[in-house]
Nucleic acid binder design. Sequence first.
DNA 1: AACATCCTAATGTCAGGACAAACTCTTGAC
DNA 2: GTCAAGAGTTTGTCCTGACATTAGGATGTT
Lengths: 246, 246
Amino acid sequence: MANQLSLSIDRSSPVPLYHQVVQGIEAAIHSGILEPGSRLDNEIDLAAQLNLSRPTMRKAMDELVRAGLLVRKRGVGTQVVSSQVRRPLELSSLYDDLSNNGKKPTTEVLSFSHVEADPLTLAALQLPAGSKVYHFTRLRKVGGKPLALMENWVRDDITSIDEAQLAKEGLYAILRRGGVNFRLASQRIGAMIANDYQAPLLEAEAGSALVTMERTAVDDTGRMVETGHHVYRADSYSFEMTLVQR
Amino acid sequence: MANQLSLSIDRSSPVPLYHQVVQGIEAAIHSGILEPGSRLDNEIDLAAQLNLSRPTMRKAMDELVRAGLLVRKRGVGTQVVSSQVRRPLELSSLYDDLSNNGKKPTTEVLSFSHVEADPLTLAALQLPAGSKVYHFTRLRKVGGKPLALMENWVRDDITSIDEAQLAKEGLYAILRRGGVNFRLASQRIGAMIANDYQAPLLEAEAGSALVTMERTAVDDTGRMVETGHHVYRADSYSFEMTLVQR
DNA sequence: AACATCCTAATGTCAGGACAAACTCTTGAC
DNA sequence: GTCAAGAGTTTGTCCTGACATTAGGATGTT
């Protein structure tokens, strides 16, 4: 049952070999060369076809299994999963998500200040008393229609932020350029009713449904970098994700 | 900087060695033996201390990094992450989540039928025309208070389901006992306003906010097993999750 | 024809080694 | 005193090899 998925591996590339394999198989699945449900060759043959060792091949397949694209069964083989699934929720900003989907988001900075953090923010970011933070609220629109109302607090000892930057690009892009390597974020998603402040800004009726998200992001040194409270129009936004059993 | 985390590895156990290490370190972190921010010994020493090879040790640490408990940096070492983060959203049912938190959920079956699937359900579960499915709605309460209203469709060629079972335990427990090995699920979380049907059942006022979730679950053979539409009282439920950068 | 048993194929686990790349700290030069 | 070069440490990648475990088909027996 040969399944020639003619990938090419570039051994002089700085991209690790197993990651090249991941990208190759991912592309083959998304382009339809590998159909949902079809079986792959066994690991040993695949490794031999690409002149790789089995551990390297396995590491690549491990990632694809984790991502939910492949399913392995001992004694049987490896199959392309029935597809129709989305990528897992990524550690990215709304701005990135929209840009990647070809949309053109615009940002309106409603307020911006550099102030001493209130006790709740100190706790959320685990900062010592008296620390200053950036505090700002933004309104994000897509195609002229309001989508999200975002309030954020960011520690100020990483990179400086100004209002003009925030209007031009996403918060995460600014922070990444400031040297922040995000590692993880914990977030909570819920719902609420639009209040009298939110409704007109989002051009929604008072009493309509909003999706709420609270998030705190941590960088690779363990610092809490950013915390925020966002609300989205429920008729225009929802969170999609894929859960993988481990 | 020795960091004796006296784990014991049982080589005669059927549990893989790397998984024993994962459990051991996980326990050490949760019990506070390994404090947040503390550095672990390097991989080679750790492997030697436990009489393991480096690849085995690395595989264990890979899992912990993926789970967000550890952070590695080349040339520097491995640290316990600042903690305070929750476990990732698991592929589990509401019933399991509540039971694990010590709550005592009760389930009321509002409707139950075994019927031909409508076109939307056929598409969601990728079934051939004319297939029959179980269709039921349930109301879940905790401490006597309504929390969730759940409508589900389940394919009928896996295991039989009856009303009495659904009142006693969670859907996923029934399916797992029927031989289903869940692999992944894709879900969408959003918000809506309680309508006249939902509000009285959830003992909420009409017009109050609800969290909505739509989910389709896939087993290890690639079959779409179950799809459902759930709504939760926004004042009693929200989705918490940890996102890990990869 | 039905059933239990063996065999094969595939993934799962584990070992040991080698070199590359990145970060830190020290040392040295200016 | 400041900056740059280098050494050492630690993780990242990749290889070869071996055996265990499981699923499913083939085989043989009753």
